[in-house]
Computed example of a mutant assay.
Amino acid sequence: MLQARLDSVNEAIANIEGGAQSYTLNGRTLTRGSLNALYAERDRLEMRIAIAANGGRGFKAKYRGRS
């Protein structure tokens, strides 16, 4: 389910980057979501997928120079 949503977001990003931000059909204009919102959603989905692949555990950050 998460991967399918990520695929949809990536497709929307590719469409917008390819010039399909908005179009007009029968006098009505449709504008797709903003790239910034789509990038943020992609980052969120990628993180959720990575956490799920890690057994549901988050990631532990390591800081250099600190004990």
Score class of each variant (00 low, 15 high):
residue 9 V to L: 00
residue 9 V to M: 02
residue 9 V to G: 01
residue 10 N to E: 14
residue 10 N to F: 13
residue 10 N to R: 15
residue 10 N to D: 13
residue 11 E to C: 08
residue 11 E to P: 06
residue 11 E to D: 15
residue 12 A to R: 14
residue 12 A to H: 09
residue 12 A to S: 11
residue 13 I to T: 11
residue 15 N to K: 15
residue 15 N to T: 12
residue 15 N to I: 09
residue 15 N to W: 14
residue 16 I to V: 03
residue 16 I to S: 04
residue 16 I to D: 01
residue 16 I to R: 07
residue 17 E to S: 05
residue 17 E to F: 04
residue 17 E to I: 05
residue 19 G to S: 01
residue 19 G to H: 06
residue 19 G to Q: 01
residue 20 A to K: 13
residue 20 A to M: 12
residue 20 A to S: 12
residue 21 Q to R: 08
residue 22 S to Y: 11
residue 22 S to I: 14
residue 22 S to M: 12
residue 23 Y to L: 10
residue 23 Y to D: 11
residue 23 Y to V: 05
residue 23 Y to S: 14
residue 24 T to F: 01
residue 24 T to Y: 06
residue 25 L to Y: 04
residue 26 N to E: 15
residue 26 N to L: 13
residue 27 G to Y: 06
residue 27 G to K: 05
residue 27 G to A: 07
residue 27 G to M: 05
residue 28 R to V: 13
residue 28 R to M: 08
residue 29 T to Y: 07
residue 29 T to A: 04
residue 29 T to F: 02
residue 30 L to G: 02
residue 30 L to H: 15
residue 30 L to Y: 15
residue 31 T to L: 04
residue 31 T to S: 02
residue 31 T to Y: 10
residue 32 R to W: 03
residue 32 R to F: 09
residue 32 R to P: 06
residue 33 G to I: 13
residue 33 G to R: 15
residue 33 G to V: 14
residue 33 G to S: 14
residue 33 G to Q: 15
residue 33 G to N: 15
residue 34 S to H: 07
residue 34 S to Y: 11
residue 34 S to V: 04
residue 34 S to G: 06
residue 35 L to A: 07
residue 35 L to M: 08
residue 36 N to S: 13
residue 36 N to V: 13
residue 36 N to K: 12
residue 37 A to R: 14
residue 38 L to K: 05
residue 39 Y to S: 02
residue 39 Y to A: 01
residue 39 Y to P: 03
residue 39 Y to Q: 01
residue 40 A to L: 01
residue 40 A to I: 00
residue 40 A to D: 02
residue 40 A to E: 01
residue 41 E to A: 03
residue 42 R to Y: 05
residue 42 R to F: 03
residue 42 R to I: 02
residue 42 R to A: 01
residue 42 R to G: 04
residue 43 D to F: 09
residue 43 D to H: 10
residue 43 D to G: 09
residue 43 D to N: 12
residue 43 D to L: 07
residue 44 R to F: 02
residue 44 R to M: 00
residue 44 R to E: 03
residue 45 L to H: 03
residue 45 L to K: 03
residue 45 L to G: 05
residue 45 L to I: 07
residue 46 E to I: 03
residue 46 E to A: 04
residue 46 E to P: 02
residue 47 M to K: 12
residue 47 M to V: 07
residue 48 R to Q: 11
residue 48 R to H: 08
residue 48 R to D: 07
residue 48 R to N: 00
residue 48 R to W: 02
residue 49 I to M: 06
residue 50 A to M: 11
residue 50 A to S: 12
residue 50 A to P: 08
residue 50 A to Y: 11
residue 50 A to W: 10
residue 51 I to R: 11
residue 52 A to M: 10
residue 52 A to N: 13
residue 52 A to V: 08
residue 53 A to I: 08
residue 53 A to D: 14
residue 53 A to N: 14
residue 54 N to P: 05
residue 54 N to I: 07
residue 55 G to I: 05
residue 55 G to T: 00
residue 55 G to D: 10
residue 55 G to F: 07
residue 55 G to E: 11
residue 56 G to V: 03
residue 56 G to A: 06
residue 56 G to C: 04
residue 56 G to N: 09
residue 56 G to S: 07
residue 56 G to Y: 12
residue 57 R to E: 15
residue 57 R to C: 12
residue 58 G to N: 11
residue 58 G to F: 13
residue 59 F to T: 02
residue 60 K to E: 12
residue 60 K to Q: 13
residue 60 K to T: 12
residue 60 K to G: 04
